[in-house]
């Protein structure tokens, strides 16, 4: 476990994740208070990565549950293996007859069978799904419940038992209590508002787009082969794009994709043609592309005049000297 916030920052850093103190504090608190963390923020700011890195830096297993509309208990928690149960009953038919030897009347036979029925509803026939796995694991694990906002409201309610008491109930068997309380990270893109009950049980962390310096640091870390000048230009452009009113604002992952693409093309510095060709790595909608192009042209024009401007004044100075 983490000993201090600096420790969190440091061990995340080792796994190529730049955690601000704000993020690190929440993670530290979550580990110390044994509380789930609800991470919100726009798409592509590293919410899912946070859980992955947390697992990696604690050297724990990551169990992931991807939420989607229509996700139910059967897919998230456990399911009875009906086919297996059926198969076993078929094979054990003779044994069943044996058990029933000596019974007189239907009532007695049913009683006899009933006394044995836990055989068929035991853990043997349970197919554990991610949540069950996380609860019954012998070692502590990191449980990532990804994009909880995509799941239905009922599923959210169903999670409450798990999140507050770290236990799940299987009606036929009983309650499973976590052997080691897992670290739970829930992520949400805010497609809908989470219920207050869920929020109450979690620590809340809002991750926003990084500022210029942070983003630059992330690029240096993740794409070390990118040219320094290119990285700076890309960050400038992306930061200014985020100020536009786009349908899908580019996240860090898009920035990284773009830098990688440009680096593969062996680019040292941005220019008009290149931007047009590679723009679709950061902007994903037709309308957005149009808007972004205008903004970029403007940006490049400014950059150029700045450059030529300084050259021009430089040369005029030379002239003065010559005269």
């Amino acid at each position: 476990m983490f000993s201090s916030i600096e420790h969190v920052v440091e061990s995340f850093g080792k796994h190529n994740y730049i955690a601000s103190r704000r993020i690190a504090t929440v993670i530290f608190l979550a580990a110390a208070m044994k509380k789930p963390v609800l991470v919100e923020g726009p798409a592509g700011v590293g919410k899912t990565d946070l859980a992955k890195v947390l697992a990696a830096s604690l050297k724990e297993e990551l169990i992931r549950l991807q939420c989607y509309e229509g996700l139910d208990e059967g897919k998230a928690l456990y399911e009875w293996e009906y086919a297996k149960q059926l198969l076993y009953t078929q094979i054990l038919k003779d044994k069943v007859t044996e058990v029933l030897v000596g019974t007189t009347g239907l009532k007695e036979a049913v009683d006899r069978i009933a006394s044995e029925d836990e055989v068929f509803f035991s853990e043997r026939f349970i197919l554990p799904r991610p949540l069950m796995k996380a609860i019954t694991s012998e070692e502590q694990v990191v449980l990532l419940i990804d994009e909880i906002d995509k799941a239905d409201a009922e599923f959210e309610a169903f999670l409450l038992e798990l999140l507050s008491d770290f236990q799940v109930t299987v009606p036929e068997i009983g309650t499973f209590k976590a052997k080691k309380v897992p670290l739970v990270i829930l992520t949400s893109n805010n497609a809908r508002e989470m219920s207050d009950a869920l929020k109450r049980r979690c620590l809340h962390l809002y991750i926003d787009f990084p500022n210029r310096e942070q983003e630059l640091a992330i690029i240096r870390l993740k794409v070390p082969e990118a040219a320094e000048k290119l990285a700076e230009e890309v960050v400038n452009v992306v930061q200014s794009l985020r100020k536009l009113d786009l349908k899908k604002t580019p996240g860090i992952s898009e920035t990284l994709d773009w830098v990688k693409a440009l680096t593969l093309l062996n680019v040292q510095s941005l220019d008009n043609a290149l931007v047009d060709e590679t723009l679709d790595t950061i902007v994903k909608y037709e309308g957005d592309v149009r808007k972004a192009q205008e903004e970029l042209k403007e940006y490049l024009r400014k950059a150029r005049t700045r450059r030529t401007g300084t050259e021009a004044t430089g040369s005029s100075d030379d002239k003065d000297l010559l005269n």
């Binding site: 923020g41 207050d196 809340h204």
Partner: peptide, 16 residues
């Protein structure tokens, strides 16, 4: 101070 603030922020505020 910042640490304390982060603690309160994470526990009391649940909407961005």
């Amino acid at each position: 101070r910042e640490l304390f603030r982060a603690g309160l922020r994470a526990t009391m505020i649940k909407r961005a």
